[in-house]
Amino acid sequence: MILRGDDAGAIAQAAEALARGELIGLPTETVYGLGADAASDAAVAGVYAAKNRPADHPLIVHVTGADRVGEFAHDVPDFAARLIDAFWPGPLTLILPRRPDRAAAAAGGQDSIGLRCPSHPVAQAILQAAWARGVHGVAAPSANRFGRVSPTTAAHVADELGPELLVIDGGPCEVGIESTIIDCTRGVPVLLRPGLLPAAALEAAAGERLRGPGDPGLAEAAAPRASGTLASHYAPQAKVVLMEAPQLQAALDALTPDRPAPAVYARTPCRVAPGTVVQQLAMPRSAADAAHDLFAVLRALDATGVPEIWIERPPADAEWDGVRDRLQRAAA
């Protein structure tokens, strides 16, 4: 059931469902989430079951603001506090030391927890209404089957998880890919998943250089598990193949009538031989626009039933890191 996010009654209905331990679909600026009361192990178990997600793969807990961090985390380092000041509300998740008495199931059993404060007004309205009903944080991974393409509209959620789920419609997601994730449990900021936020801006706000998960001097054994960091993720049913523009054109030139045609998503215009029907969509030149469109495009092309989706590899520029990360995982 899809309800309008600009309806106060729908917001109240969603908050009451969360307080009863039920699941809801809710919009954020990144993607739509499958929400549950983060403090309820039974509700969180419902999220894992609905997504067919491994129970040790942690969820991100959404809170109303910086003043709610202490509900779930302790010993917040100074650089993390600076990141919160700079980018919350917004598409940034921080992995922080978890309070031992909070949200163990949502954290996948780890002693750390991922926290985010979404900027979407409908998400904020739901979180505020839920708080008033005793729900102090909403665990909300993307509202799709585990490993599949994330939803960026309410209709995507209903198509993925069924019409019985209460989904609050906040319109198409503004960002379109999941949040940046920074691990703040190892004394320095460690980038676990790129998103829309530029690394240079994150470093400027943190006052520290961002590390990578495999950087020398970081104890790999201490690295927390985090959402969306598996090698294979965000994948449609069709096989995703990444190619440079010349390789993509050569593959199109080599198509024969007896081979099922792929779909193509590319920034560079491609030629197709006469008589060959290939569905093509143009990738935006802007990284932000490409991020906004990415998951909707993958879903639309997948819906045509093509066996493969050939995608021009994004530029190596830092602003494309989030899009490139999602496509590499989709093609893994």
Rank of each mutant, 00 (worst) to 15 (best):
T64D: 07
T64P: 00
G65W: 10
A66Q: 13
A66K: 11
D67G: 11
D67H: 15
D67A: 15
V69K: 02
F72E: 04
A73H: 02
H74L: 14
H74T: 15
H74Q: 13
D75Y: 09
V76A: 07
V76P: 02
V76K: 04
P77A: 14
P77I: 14
P77R: 12
F79M: 12
A80Y: 04
A80R: 01
A81D: 08
R82I: 02
R82S: 05
L83R: 00
L83G: 00
D85M: 08
A86F: 05
A86D: 01
F87N: 01
F87Q: 00
F87A: 01
P89F: 10
G90D: 05
L92M: 06
L92G: 03
L94M: 07
L96E: 02
P97L: 11
R98L: 11
R98M: 10
R98E: 07
R99G: 11
D101A: 12
A105I: 06
A106Y: 02
A107Q: 03
A107P: 09
G109V: 11
G109W: 05
Q110G: 09
D111M: 09
D111G: 09
S112Q: 07
S112I: 12
I113V: 13
G114A: 14
L115W: 05
R116C: 09
S119Y: 00
P121G: 05
V122I: 15
Q124A: 10
L127I: 14
Q128N: 12
A130E: 07
W131M: 08
A132I: 01
A132T: 04
R133G: 01
R133F: 05
V135I: 07
V135W: 04
G137F: 03
A139R: 02
A140V: 05
A140K: 03
S142T: 09
S142P: 11
N144D: 14
N144R: 04
F146D: 06
V149G: 01
V149Q: 01
S150C: 11
A154Q: 06
A155C: 13
V157D: 00
A158L: 11
D159S: 15
D159P: 11
L161H: 08
P163R: 14
L165F: 08
L166F: 10
L166A: 07
L166W: 06
I168P: 07
I168C: 05
